[in-house]
Design a protein around this nucleic acid. Sequence first.
DNA 1: GAATGATGTTTAAATTTTGTTTAAAAATAG
DNA 2: CTATTTTTAAACAAAATTTAAACATCATTC
Lengths: 222, 222
Amino acid sequence: MVHILYIEDEEEIGQWVTEDLIGRGHNVTWLTSGNQLEQHINNIDLAILDIMLPGLDGFSIGKRIKKANQDTPIVMLSARSAVEDKLEGLSFADDYVTKPFHPDELAARVDALLRRFQKGEESMEVGHLQIDTKSSIIINKHTREEILLTGKQYQLFQYFLRHLNQILTKEQLYEGVWGERFMEGDKTLMVHIRYLREKIEENPAKPTIIETIRGIGYRVKK
Amino acid sequence: MVHILYIEDEEEIGQWVTEDLIGRGHNVTWLTSGNQLEQHINNIDLAILDIMLPGLDGFSIGKRIKKANQDTPIVMLSARSAVEDKLEGLSFADDYVTKPFHPDELAARVDALLRRFQKGEESMEVGHLQIDTKSSIIINKHTREEILLTGKQYQLFQYFLRHLNQILTKEQLYEGVWGERFMEGDKTLMVHIRYLREKIEENPAKPTIIETIRGIGYRVKK
DNA sequence: GAATGATGTTTAAATTTTGTTTAAAAATAG
DNA sequence: CTATTTTTAAACAAAATTTAAACATCATTC
């Protein structure tokens, strides 16, 4: 399911757009400011940002998101249709919709962007695993058996796949998957890593897919 | 994670700003005076200083921080909005916010400064090493092998990288990395230097990356 | 330029921290 | 209510960190 982060301070339009996108089968997180941005920044497939926001504006948020992950498509929304805005907004944005807009138009742009950004990534391989990104099916290439993960295990694994080759701190992982502040010394994440390894590793005691970076966190390499 | 040092003597506003910044995903150390400044001075990514403080005032602290590291961005806070203050404050400060302010405004300025000061530092080279700052990966350019450091080793190396070409005293290094007072004669740091050299130097007995400055400390040159 | 003391290096062992594993309790979904 | 997932807890294992001590090197003085 596609995760969309939508930042919009106007109650009415926010509610309306959120409901519409959910109705089209997307998962939508609607925030009224960029305050809790960090909690979501590494866990979204697309962002829709209003330019005019109190405090941290849409431009800053957009740049922040692109810095965290270059591959997150961004749609900018604006009540203004001035040409200079379009140009400045599009310097990092991937598409631009001016208010007022018809929900079909926004949905069409969102779908187009998702297609553009996801193309060529129908299926990926990590170690002895084959992952079909569209259907979220994981297959063991050796046994040809499908691996079924629980919710948390799946979210955790997805987080690794979205940040391939990066060393992820326990803090990043916990906050990215659980969306809560990580408490130093909490073993919850480690237990989930253990159970995930049990399912995806050939030998869970000698893991090759999820590498432990002692003192820091974990990593999954391509 | 971004390390912010915040010096503010007013309990209420201090608590409030600290919580807000932590909520935005930053690591914040809040001090009510500049007394313990030295413990943190070499280990922060940004400082927020109130101008009116008991004892050592914001200006002096700011100049002290800039002297220690020219690259630490500083935001000055002031209850006064007089123009002359702004000018004097900005002579070393990188931005200036007048009280009262909205937390979003402060956060936006902080983010903007961090972006400005951190730009263009995705990857750097030191000797035969290549360091990717985003993924925290260190590679030996000759063998193409990755070098995995332990937590302390990594922190220590990062400290050197943040202070390239500077001669660092053992005291600075120990207090910067361990955050504790350095005891004259303690060999702990040296042992860690040894193990770090074992991993990053081509010949640990004849180190070229981490240079020993006898009687003072160590240095890593670009 | 050899003796001396001070400072830095190296190695190994002791200690502490961090990560793994298992089991059981608690929460959640069907 | 039952089955499954998630969290908590505790025992265990492994690795990192600190401590300690022997060793080497440099600088100074005689």
